[in-house]
Structures are given as structure tokens and as C-alpha cells.
Amino acid sequence: MMTFAFALPGLADELEINLGTLATEAELHSRSISIFPGGRGLPPGSGGVGEGAELYRARCRTCHGETGSEGPASRLSGSDGWMSFSDPLRIVRIQKNPLLVMSVGAQWPYATSIFDYVRRAMPHTAPKSLTNDEVYALTAYILYLNELVSEDAILTKENLPGVEMPGRARTVDVWQEE
């Protein structure tokens, strides 16, 4: 009984609890949806700005606005801050919806994160419903709205990690500094 009184590191080992079961490759493959800055996790497939624009109009525009910066949901394009979009009522709108002071294009350090997030969470009302090709296309369109790729860009797992995002140079890593 004494061992239970102290939660020492190694307790589980000492008690040989071992109630986890070995995960199979197939289980891990279907659940591992994280995409990393270097491109690890990106699936095969491709998508271009043109297809992305069409998908955007059909499935994203009502929440993210005509050019990705009008809201009502989070801004996907333009710079961050109060003065960065030309709406005379922006102060009132930001009061109602503070998310409009941010922008994916200006803030996010890696383009791979756009793929990761859109695939797992968007559109908000039907997450995980897009195909990999569609996610590549929408990622390309969001990057195009921010003038980070050209109009004829087609994205794949090879070239997406190479897209440079302005948010990267602005990054201060508070955790590493401690």
C-alpha cells in the first residue's frame, strides 16, 4: 500500500499497469492528420488557383467575404490591424467581431498550416468534407488572394512547403526564449 501514497515517476512501470494496446499502422494512418511546416503529412494530390476560386465562391464566401477580408468570419487575406481594410464602419465591426483584426495572409508563418486547418475544420458547418485536391486548390486561392502565389499556380505536396509567408519573419518564439 505504501507505493500508492507517493506518485513517484516510474510508478506505472513499477506497478506494471501497461493497459495500452499497440496501435496498428492502419489506425495511425487514418488518424494522423497533422501537417508540419516541412511538408510532412501532406497527401498526394494537387489543386490550382482557378479551381480554388470557384470552390471558394461556393463554399467559403458567405462567411469569409468576397475577397477573404470582409468577414464576418476570420480574415484570410490582407494585413492585420485596425486600418488595413477600407470599410468606414470597421471600428464598429471589429467591436462586434474582434477576429477581423487578424489575417491569415499577414500572420501565419507557414502555408502548410492553411492546408492542415482547412482540411480538418472547414467549411465550419461541414468539416472534413473536402477532398485533398480541393484543399490544395483552396489553399492556392487563399495564397493568391494574398499575392503569395501567381494566378496560374498549382500546389502539390512538393511545392506547398516552399511558399514563403510574411508571418514567419515577424515571429518571436516566446517559449524558446524562456
Binding site: 497533422s34 507557414y110 492542415d116
Partner: peptide, 27 residues
């Protein structure tokens, strides 16, 4: 070995500093 830079550590849960830089992982 490294963070994934998920949506929240890319945008919503970061801070804009007065010099224009962006603080991340301010846990």
C-alpha cells in the same frame, strides 16, 4: 521534434507586439 504551427498558434492565440512582430507560444 518541432511544433506543427496549428491554426491557433499561427493566428488567434498569438500576440502582436508594439514593434510589429508576433509573439508565439506565450503559454
Amino acid at each position: 521534434e518541432t511544433p506543427a504551427f496549428t491554426k491557433d498558434e499561427s493566428g488567434l492565440y498569438t500576440e502582436f507586439l508594439s514593434d510589429g512582430s508576433i509573439a508565439r507560444f506565450s503559454f
